[in-house]
C-alpha cells in the first residue's frame, strides 16, 4: 500500500481547526463587528503597531493561513462527500493551491512592511 501525503494537509487542518476553536469566535466578532466601526486612523495604526513586531507578524500570518488550510481541507472532502462530478486531483489542487498562494502573498505583504 502506498504512503499517503495526507498527514501534511491534516496537520495544517488540525492546527487551523484548533486556532478557530480557541480564538475564532472572538476574532470574527473583533474584525467583523468592532474593527469596521473603530476610528479608522486608530485602527490603521493599531495594525501598524501589531505588524511592527515580528511576533505580531507571525500571529497575523497564523490567523490568516491556518484557517485557510483548515477550511479548504473540509471543502475538498465535502465536495467528495456530495459526489461532486469534478476530478479529485483538480479539486485538491484548487483547494490547497489557493490556500498556499494566499499564504505566500500574505507572508510577503507582511515582510515588506
Amino acid at each position: 500500500m502506498k504512503r499517503s501525503n495526507e498527514p501534511v494537509a491534516w496537520g495544517l487542518f488540525g492546527a487551523g481547526g484548533m486556532l478557530l476553536a480557541l480564538v475564532g469566535p472572538g476574532l470574527v466578532v473583533a474584525t467583523g463587528f468592532l474593527l469596521p466601526f473603530a476610528e479608522p486612523a486608530a485602527a490603521f495604526h493599531a495594525v501598524d503597531a501589531l505588524i511592527a513586531h515580528p511576533l505580531g507578524k507571525l500571529l497575523l500570518l497564523a490567523a490568516i493561513a491556518l484557517p485557510l488550510y483548515h477550511t479548504v481541507h473540509r471543502l475538498h472532502h465535502g465536495l467528495q462527500e456530495l459526489h461532486a462530478p469534478l476530478p479529485h486531483g483538480l479539486v485538491a489542487l484548487l483547494c490547497y493551491g489557493s490556500a498556499t498562494v494566499l499564504t505566500i502573498a500574505s507572508a510577503s505583504w507582511l515582510l515588506v512592511r
Partner: peptide, 14 residues
C-alpha cells in the same frame, strides 16, 4: 503502519 499510512488506511476517514 504501512496499511494505516495509506490513503485506504486511516486517511480515508473524515
Amino acid at each position: 503502519m504501512a496499511a494505516l499510512n495509506a490513503d485506504e488506511g486511516v486517511w480515508r476517514c473524515t
